[in-house]
Computed example of a mutant assay.
Amino acid sequence: MVKVMWFLRKADHLSMEEFRQWWLEGHAPMISAKQGHLISRYVVNVSLTDDLPGGTGVDAGWDGVAEEWFETIDDARQAFSLPSALETRADVMAHVSAMSRLVVSEDCILDWPANR
């Protein structure tokens, strides 16, 4: 399993609620429609305004993380080579001030509820 993790920082002109709304109601449906036939799983994680006890006190620097799972690296390559990739990237760049990507192989250590 190949996972692509996208780290996004919202554009300065957006509130966190506007950023969340764009991502969940605008961008995510676009990804699903254009790349969904190649993606096994797609999850969007938008930062909450409240931290939890035990935090580091250091700002993570990102306002959200998207996770795209692919069965193979070839599926991922194909998804990011589609003609629509330019359109989806332009949409992101209009709504973020920074973006980074990490391509990983996922190794599941715990999987609830199977481990309960």
Score class of each variant (00 low, 15 high):
Leu102Pro: 07
His95Ile: 07
Pro29Leu: 09
Ile31Trp: 01
Met30Tyr: 11
Met16Ala: 09
Gln78Tyr: 04
Ile31Asn: 00
Leu48Asp: 11
Gln35Asp: 02
Arg20Trp: 03
Thr56Asp: 06
Ala33Cys: 06
Trp23Gln: 11
Val43Gln: 07
Gly57Asn: 03
Trp6Val: 15
Met99Asp: 07
Ile73Ser: 03
Gly54Leu: 08
Glu67Ser: 10
Asp75Ser: 08
Ser97Ala: 10
Gly54Tyr: 06
Phe80Met: 14
Ser47His: 03
Trp69Ala: 06
Asp50Asn: 12
Ser15Leu: 10
His27Ala: 04
Asp59Asn: 12
Ser47Tyr: 03
Leu38Trp: 01
Pro113Glu: 14
Trp112Ser: 12
His13Phe: 05
Met5Gly: 13
Val104Tyr: 07
Pro29Ser: 09
Met99Glu: 14
Asp91Trp: 04
Glu25Gln: 09
Val92Tyr: 02
Ala66Ser: 14
Leu24Gly: 03
His37Tyr: 07
Ile39Met: 07
Leu14Gly: 00
Ala33Ile: 00
Thr49Asn: 13
Trp6Phe: 09
Leu48Met: 10
Asp63Cys: 04
Met16Asp: 10
Gln78His: 15
Asp50His: 14
Val58His: 04
Arg77Trp: 06
Ser84Tyr: 04
Gln21Cys: 05
Gly26Gln: 03
Gly57Leu: 01
Arg9Pro: 03
Leu24Met: 10
Glu106Arg: 11
Gly64Glu: 01
Gln21Ala: 10
His13Lys: 11
Arg9Trp: 05
Thr72Phe: 02
His95Pro: 00
Leu82Lys: 05
Lys10Phe: 12
Leu48His: 06
Leu82His: 01
Asp75Gln: 06
Val4Gln: 11
Asp91Asn: 02
Glu87Asn: 07
Trp112Phe: 13
Pro113Phe: 14
Asp59Cys: 05
Asp59Tyr: 02
Met16Asn: 13
Val46Ala: 01
Asp75Gly: 02
Asp75Cys: 09
His37Leu: 03
Leu24Pro: 00
Val65Tyr: 04
Glu71Ser: 13
Phe7Gln: 04
Arg116His: 10
Tyr42His: 08
Gln78Cys: 11
Glu18Ala: 06
Lys34Ser: 13
Asp107Leu: 14
Asp51Gly: 15
Ala90Asn: 10
Thr56Pro: 00
Arg116Asn: 08
Arg9Lys: 11
Trp22Asp: 04
Asp59Phe: 07
Arg101Asp: 02
